[in-house]
Amino acid sequence: MGSFRPGDPVAVSQLFDQIAPRYDQLNDLLSLGLHRVWKRQAIAWLRPRAGQRLLDLCCGTGDLALVLAEKVRPGGLVLGLDAAAAPLAVAARRAAARPWLPLQWRQADALATGLAEGWADGAVIAYGLRNLSDPGAGLAELRRLLRAGGRAAVLDFNRPDPAAGPPLGSSPPCSCLALRHVVVPTAAAAGLRDHYAYLEESLRRFPTGADQERLARLAGFARARHRPLGGGLMGLLELLA
């Protein structure tokens, strides 16, 4: 298995097509289930309610979309969008077991969704912005899709600003160390070393929290706040259109 190039749309889609069957189990194992806690914090910022139309960009296997769909009933809709076919197939199978949920799935590029301007009341991107060829363009498309006053939450690994130093009384964030010494060896046991080694490579080119805030304001968001989660391993970008 060759290495996967961060920012290459074809390579990224191939990567997620290949890991889709084991993606959810590995997420639970590698994060000790904490990814669900971090996703709940993203949902808490979004404040989903009945009747809303929500978008899950880079939805993967659909775990966030499934939770959001429960919260927009009755009268709402959640659209899960991803560039890779295999994760969407997993998401559709999961949703088929809960046919009462207002869910739709679409294979499309997060940089050019084809949806109408202001289509969504709110949106989430979990572990997807980092994989786009241009995160700034991804934030611009996200803003275009939101109605005025709509909320968005972007959850991903945190790339700390090396010039800023750790907050007073805390330890330095160790995203790369955790990836290198815990995540990749564990994934290697499942035959997915290159797929998860990609995470550290993608993190190197990912904007810091401060840069994400700046890019979001340039994209037209009225409010952008990035805050660390999980002791600085993760970051949540809270956006208001």
Rank of each mutant, 00 (worst) to 15 (best):
P166W: 02
P6V: 08
A123E: 03
G122E: 00
R5G: 09
A123F: 04
S13A: 15
S202D: 05
W105F: 13
A11K: 05
L46W: 04
G220A: 11
A187P: 07
D24H: 08
L79Y: 04
D194H: 12
G209E: 02
A241Y: 01
L237V: 01
I43N: 10
A163Y: 08
G220R: 10
L54G: 01
R93G: 09
A96F: 06
G80H: 03
A153F: 04
L177T: 15
L146H: 04
A92F: 05
V10Q: 13
A108D: 12
K39D: 05
L233S: 13
Y198T: 00
L68F: 08
L101V: 09
D63I: 00
P74N: 11
F16T: 03
D194C: 11
A110S: 13
A187W: 03
R144K: 10
A222S: 12
D194P: 07
L29Y: 11
A123R: 01
Q104L: 13
L218Q: 14
A197Y: 07
N27P: 09
A95M: 08
N131R: 03
A42I: 09
R106Y: 12
R214H: 12
T208P: 06
Q52K: 02
L26R: 12
R151A: 15
A187N: 10
A126N: 01
A178C: 14
V67F: 08
W119I: 09
R40H: 14
N27E: 10
Y196G: 03
D28M: 06
P9C: 05
A152D: 06
D194W: 01
L240W: 14
G231Y: 11
G149W: 07
G231P: 11
A126K: 05
H35W: 01
Q107I: 12
Y196N: 05
P6W: 04
A50S: 14
R106M: 14
L77G: 03
L239N: 09
A108I: 11
Q18L: 14
P74V: 09
L236C: 11
A123W: 01
G235R: 00
P87G: 09
G62V: 00
G122N: 04
R193S: 09
A50G: 13
G220I: 08
L233F: 15
C176K: 04
A95W: 02
T208I: 06
